[in-house]
Amino acid sequence: MRAFPPRLPDQPIFYPVTSEAYAVKIARDWNVPASGAGFVTRFAIDKAYLDAYPIQDAGGRDHQEYWIPAEDLPAFNAAIIGLIEVVVSFP
């Protein structure tokens, strides 16, 4: 996979997180109960692009994420280097 899909109308923000542990928690504890599955992805992104977005604290040092407006997702995807890989999945 080379890009994240567009956000749905009720998803105005894309929230890439800064640690795999936090991503696992979201996928396992939130996404599985809500939708029946959860996935953790890993990807590289151009640091110069990402520097335009401050890291947000979403509940402590272990819960940090970026808040990318849905309208910025095409530029975010263009800044991804290489492929997006699924590293953990919860069926």
Rank of each mutant, 00 (worst) to 15 (best):
F43E: 03
R61M: 00
D72C: 09
K25Y: 15
V17W: 09
V86M: 09
A37T: 01
E85F: 00
I84V: 09
V88P: 01
I55A: 07
D46W: 11
A48C: 14
A3V: 11
P16R: 08
P9W: 04
A78P: 05
Q11D: 13
D29T: 12
D46Y: 13
E65R: 04
N31G: 12
V40Y: 05
D29Q: 14
A34P: 08
P91K: 15
A3W: 06
Y15W: 06
A34R: 15
A37Y: 04
T18F: 15
S19T: 13
L8V: 05
A75L: 03
A34H: 14
G38Y: 02
I80C: 06
Q64V: 15
D62K: 12
V88D: 11
L50P: 05
G38R: 01
A70E: 05
P6I: 12
D72N: 10
N77A: 05
A75T: 05
D10C: 11
D10S: 13
V86W: 02
P9V: 06
N31P: 08
F14D: 08
Q56G: 02
A70Q: 04
K47E: 15
I68Y: 05
I26Y: 14
K47W: 12
V87K: 01
A44Q: 04
F76P: 03
V87P: 00
P16N: 07
G82T: 02
A75W: 05
K47F: 14
D72L: 08
Y49P: 04
G38M: 02
F76A: 12
K47G: 12
I55P: 01
S19P: 01
L50C: 10
F4R: 11
P5G: 12
T41H: 12
A23H: 07
Q64F: 13
A23V: 09
F43N: 03
P9K: 07
D10N: 14
A3P: 02
V24G: 13
A27M: 11
P74E: 00
A44W: 04
T41V: 11
M1S: 14
H63L: 09
N77V: 02
Y53K: 00
P74K: 02
R42Y: 00
D62Y: 11
L83D: 13
G36L: 07
L8N: 03
A27Q: 08
F76Y: 14
K25F: 15
G82A: 08
Y15Q: 03
P74H: 01
G60F: 02
R61T: 01
W30N: 13
A27L: 09
